Computed example of a mutant assay.
Amino acid sequence: MAIKVYGSDFSIGTYRVLLCLAEKDIDFELITVHLASGEHKKPHMLARNPFGQIPAFEDGDIKLFESRAIAQYISRAYVDKGTCLINMDPKKAAVEAVWMEAEAHQFDRATTALMWELCMKRFLFGQSGDEDVVNAEEKKLVCVLDVYEARLSESKYLGGDSFSLADLFHTPMIKFLMGTQMKCVFDTRPHVSAWVADILSRLACVKVFGMPVY
């Protein structure tokens, strides 16, 4: 039975799952959920994600939601396929886990409003972002990236010397922000800039962001 991903091109979480599947070279069926019509709140989607959000995921008899949990499942269930995205050494795995948590609790919080103001408002409504909000959120991002710059001066990737879920979880948000004025915030930090160039040039990233998700 084919893996099914229920998602949308307006969803950072959907892209996290697609990137993980691409890194693992796993075939899947993408089922588009139409957010504008409120499909994600309909009974058939609430049965897959009771919070009425996307993505949702099915692999045979296992049904999951929350993109980071889905990616961790894929990485463990298909550990022998494609790119190894999790470390089996407990100490190295713990370091990766720290930076996965940093993405969820530091980076994501610093960038979600920027994504809305600089990308989604323009794309969905043809509106410019609120400058006051953008300036306030940019300050938060600066603080986070200062920490990342220090970390990446010590290792090539956030979790260590090899690409992992700690890096992958950041990729969709970074991809979108690179098309905004926030690009300079990343570019002015040499280690962060090199890391961004590396993760965005990965074959999985090129494949996912080159494929239509409509």
Rank of each mutant, 00 (worst) to 15 (best):
M45L: 13
Y78N: 02
L158M: 14
W116M: 14
L203W: 06
H40R: 05
G52W: 06
I3K: 00
E131L: 11
D27I: 02
K81L: 09
E101L: 03
H191W: 02
L203P: 13
D9Y: 01
M100R: 13
I86W: 00
M182G: 08
L19T: 03
L85Q: 11
V206F: 07
A94K: 13
A97I: 05
M211I: 08
D132S: 10
I86Q: 08
D167G: 04
G38Q: 07
L200K: 00
D9S: 13
S67N: 13
I3E: 01
H34Y: 09
L200Y: 05
Y73P: 09
G160K: 01
Q106Y: 10
K139N: 11
H40Y: 06
Y214W: 11
G129Q: 00
C20Y: 04
T83A: 10
Q53P: 05
A150P: 00
P55K: 07
W116T: 15
L203V: 12
R109F: 13
R122I: 01
E23I: 01
E66Y: 09
E58A: 14
S11Q: 04
L203I: 09
K207W: 06
L19P: 01
E39V: 07
V192E: 04
Q127H: 09
L85A: 09
I174D: 01
Y6K: 07
R151S: 10
E137V: 03
L19I: 00
L118S: 01
E29D: 15
T14L: 07
H170L: 06
D167E: 08
F169M: 12
K41M: 15
E39S: 07
I174M: 05
Y157E: 03
G179R: 05
L124M: 14
D27A: 13
L21Q: 03
D167Y: 04
G129R: 00
A71P: 12
V79G: 10
P212I: 02
V133P: 02
Q106K: 10
G160L: 00
W99G: 06
I3S: 00
A110W: 02
K92T: 12
D89M: 03
Y15T: 00
S11L: 01
F65C: 13
A56F: 08
D89W: 08
F10A: 13
A2I: 07
H105T: 12
V142I: 15
L19M: 07
I26Y: 04
A204M: 01
V95F: 07
V98S: 13
A94C: 14
H34S: 10
A104Y: 08
Y157I: 11
I26K: 09
S8A: 04
L118D: 00
E154T: 08
A56L: 05
T83N: 12
L124P: 01
K183R: 15
D108K: 03
K139Q: 14
F65L: 09
E137S: 04
S8N: 11
